[in-house]
Design a protein around this nucleic acid. Structure first.
Lengths: 195, 195
DNA sequence: TTAAAAACATACAAACTGCATGTACTAAAT
DNA sequence: ATTTAGTACATGCAGTTTGTATGTTTTTAA
């Protein structure tokens, strides 16, 4: 294994570190995962870790960033922009629920992320990836008068929180159907008054 | 300072530890708060801490427990049981928003709590204190046919999540009025179809 | 081919956690 | 009242962990 270019070397070890870290962060949580374990699983030394990342938190941020991007990508792929705003919202919502069922994502994005990186940093990540498509869908639905006009940012935040709560509850053993029914009922409450 | 009974001694130091710990956990977060700092602020030694609490996490759990109980108490005090189910829900919701504005409560109960103690443990705390009154209010409202009939647990969870999201957003600088408007609109969606 | 810079590896110092052991204070018994 | 036992605390220690500083190897540029 020789003659590798420097960007290749960096990308490879960073990828190995992120992959190994993701697995351990998911399994044991951020706080209970030690950097010696991460580098052992990645097959490198702590020197490599601290060469590529400022600290353990920065590595975790990279893991979270990747995960949020993957979720957003899956959602946008399943629910591309369409003139049928309401259908787009429904499809997107279902895709989000589906994407968050990938093991570890709730822990990374909803539990450990806010505590380790701070709520503000997580909001920034969400704005850059996740909630963007939700906000755009809601904006389109308002434009089309399919739902009532409400403050866009606030609505996005609270709807997203409902979805996240449903996801967590389901993951912790609650009935899927019940949460879907409630989700649908509350969404129906958004229907435009005159429609 | 002599002739103090043993239960008095224990209660006093435990109270000092919990108070000092709360302040530091709020200021620096659970992970970045060291037990030497806590005991220094409390005016005791680490020996006392580990005599009364199994570990740092158990002390944090005691802080969280106290805080959740205080929030539940304030809410139930402001919105006692009444035949006017809808009014009770509104008053209770406002009281909850108010109670959560006490500095540190969002960090303790919504951010660090789930990460440090686990989501399951936090749910248990909420069921024992916080969401109990919300669930009872919703049940009464359904009974009175003031809101549509929906799975109670799921509805409680998702409504609670909406409130928490609104609280956090407001704390991080968003407009209060916008979130209140959205909260009201979504709650209106719960109105009984035939009402 | 040599100088540099980048990518790693190793070694170290500081801090923190939990426990084990030791001391003081309270409670109970004689 | 004195001794005994138990509880409440204090001190000291061992094992980890984190971040950095320094050393080595590999790639890049001259």
């Amino acid at each position: 294994m020789q003659a590798r270019t420097n960007p290749e070397r960096s990308a490879a070890t960073k990828a190995q570190l992120i992959a190994a870290a993701r697995a351990l962060f998911v399994e044991k949580g951020y706080a209970d995962t030690a950097t010696p374990d991460i580098v052992a699983a990645a097959g490198v030394t702590r020197g490599a870790l601290y060469h590529h990342f400022a600290d353990k938190q920065a590595l975790f941020a990279a893991v979270v960033e990747r995960e949020a991007a993957a979720v957003a990508d899956e959602v946008e792929r399943a629910a591309p922009f369409s003139p049928d705003a309401m259908g787009m919202l429904q499809t997107g919502g279902r895709a989000y629920l589906q994407a968050m069922r990938v093991p570890g994502r709730t822990r990374l994005l909803l539990i450990d992320g806010p505590a380790a990186l701070g709520r503000a940093a997580m909001d920034e990540v969400h704005n850059r990836h996740g909630s963007r498509s939700l906000r755009e869908g809601l904006a389109a639905a308002m434009e089309a008068r399919a739902i009532r006009t409400l403050p866009l940012d606030a609505l996005t935040v609270q709807l997203g929180a409902m979805f996240d709560a449903a996801i967590l509850a389901i993951e912790y053993g609650r009935q899927v159907e019940e949460h879907m029914e409630v989700l649908g009922a509350l969404m129906n409450g958004l229907a435009a008054p005159g429609a």
